[in-house]
Design a protein around this nucleic acid. Structure first.
Lengths: 218, 218, 218, 218
DNA sequence: AATGAATGAGAGTTCATTCAT
DNA sequence: AATGAATGAACTCTCATTCAT
């Protein structure tokens, strides 16, 4: 993850009712928002989607419920912002890595993508777990769609630029590869012993990706 | 999927509060339960987890809310039974296919597993979509864990028996492969245009699996 | 208690909607009614007024809910009949004892009343406990009023006939005495260790009654 | 009743699920709680235990149902607090009177106890009637047990200190006397014409107690 | 006569959100 | 700007009762 990666990278526009109320420009505001985000993740991890109530979030964040509503017009907007930030960070990190590995050999491209994606999820593993579990609670189709599209774009550019490689059905390959990387990783995060098993999974996923892309190229 | 596949295969025992209240023995009862199941799926597809209320389910099923509660002690128990049945069917189908392809060449084993899993999901695609979306809403960890374990077992036996193949780290391979097959498929079912894209995904996933398993064997 | 004491002694008429549906004339019917009564008391003792549902009563009685409703038009009617029978038995027993002790010395009259009342409650202690606890659940004012009136009448006749005794304010004495005997006994039945403490209470209540009546006579 | 009598005297601790949610510190909150208490009593008096629903209480109190649940986690907890306060006031008043009459002649002790108890019930006669009727609806065994124990203690100390009096079986006497005073009074409050008949009952109960205690002492 | 699946009004309770302070 | 008491629509679930079989 990287300081240059900014929230403004996000291309999905919040659908009106989910827009945040004020940009937290001042330091105190930023701290408040951060506390609310952190509290949301904690509540999710401790009690699951069932326990995620605005009052509980506010209490855990140490602010009043009224203050929470000064920053977000509702629970959905808050979650939208939180998930959005999380997904944007991950997408941006993957995009960055992909740009950095352009024109390299296919195996390096493959590894770069896989590692960047998993690293992004590992960067804040608690948030990853919490938000995976909560994501169904809301209708965040546009957020996930945006993310998938950004990953598709990044993967596509990367594969198209890879040394000595051409793909007959590039779209199909990209689409399937991204599905498998994101879906497989999600599966790991939703199971127990995430941390213990991640190294093995990362290694195998990398091996699988290399083997697949190699087999898929013309 | 197969007529012989029976619900009784299921190994996860409902944890008390989630147990069904009466098994529908009479014809009318069976029809009622089936209507409730079908209604649940419809409500999920139309309104998502947010719209899934017991009253709506009962209304859509054409029964009274009281009737619903005669069969299930609560919403969770109903979903538990529904998801349980769905996952059990899928697990059983995969197990059956794996047993049928024992000792065959590795590529056939790979294809058998991938195809059986996707076929199981395609068998009732609406239910698959609906339940993927809803499964996070409840705590059905034990159901998904049981399913994953059954798939692990089936995949492990299959790979261990495959012709001319030995794997150094069989557990790691099985674990990663299953994660990627189930997670990738889930990703497809949660996106739009599921039906249109499935054929491509199936083909690529099969290719990926063959390539991976081939690369993973000693 | 006594075989001659018949239910028809009861003077309070069920207020229409609480009337029983059929007189259990046949032997089988009688057994059914008895089973329902017994089940009602058991359910009350085991789960309190909260657990007293018609379905539970029917189940415990070993009859279907439909059968229960063939005998009683509703839950209130059932309880009304049960409590009515219980109170009628007690009232009749007290009346009998009072008639048998007419014109005896005051101390004997006092003992007769106290002992008859407590004996009646002890005769079916489980029913007594259960029905004390449940009596508030329904509006059985007329039943308790009738009982109180019968007890008043019996006590009044008894005291008026007692040897060497005249009371200035007979009504006030009777009213207070009956309140104390019935209320005190109820208190004992609602506390724990009813059985252990009853002998002492009976003795003290008898002593109290004798002392009181002696002090109250002119 | 007495201003010094505080709720904190209460020794029975609410069993978790019955604990109040917040103590009303601000003036507005206090008024709200008082309105809820008053409404509860009114509803009980008008419709009996059957009509006692949380929504009706809230409506009558002029607050929303949500507000009620901010202060009490449920109907039972509300009643628990209300009955608890009522019983605590009565117990404390009796204890106070007993302490004030220590070492006095037995007749004065007797009168003090009887009058203190009845005065406590008369202090808020509507509440007394209402709560007598409702108390069986809930499981408030611990509250009534605590009250009985406090009354036992107070009566015991009083009798043990009375001039020129010793009791062979003090416990049995106290236990029976308290049962009769509380049970008899309850009976009066549950019958009609409570107010009209109370003076007579009070006089007769006082007479009965004096006669009894006199007869019981060695 | 007996059964028990079905009914649905109505109860308890939650929680996102508002707004007077 | 911040607070938190108050709100009430919406939800889950119960249980007395009916009626086709």
């Amino acid at each position: 993850m990287n300081a240059q990666v900014r929230y403004s990278h996000m291309t999905a526009l919040p659908p009106g009712r989910l827009k945040s109320r004020k940009q937290p420009s001042q330091a105190r505001s930023q701290a408040t928002v951060e506390a609310i985000f952190e509290a949301t993740i904690q509540v999710l991890l401790q009690g699951g989607a069932r326990a995620l109530t605005t009052n509980r979030i506010a209490e855990k964040a140490g602010v009043s419920i009224g203050t929470l509503y000064q920053y977000y017009p509702g629970k959905e907007a808050l979650l939208y912002a939180l998930v959005g930030r999380h997904l944007d960070k991950a997408s941006a990190a993957v995009e960055l890595a992909c740009r950095a590995h352009r024109s390299m050999p296919l195996a390096d491209c493959s590894d770069a993508f896989v590692n960047a994606y998993i690293d992004a999820k590992i960067g804040d593993p608690e948030a990853s777990r919490a938000l995976y579990h909560a994501s169904t609670a809301l209708d965040m189709k546009d957020l996930t769609d945006t993310t998938i599209k950004r990953l598709h774009g990044a993967a596509r550019d990367l594969l198209a630029s890879a040394q000595d490689s051409r793909f007959e059905n590039l779209d199909g390959v990209v689409f399937s590869w991204v599905a498998v990387v994101t879906g497989g990783t999600r599966q790991i995060f939703e199971e127990d012993e995430t941390i213990e098993r991640l190294p093995i999974f990362r290694e195998q996923l990398a091996r699988m990706s290399r083997a697949y892309l190699n087999a898929a190229k013309v």
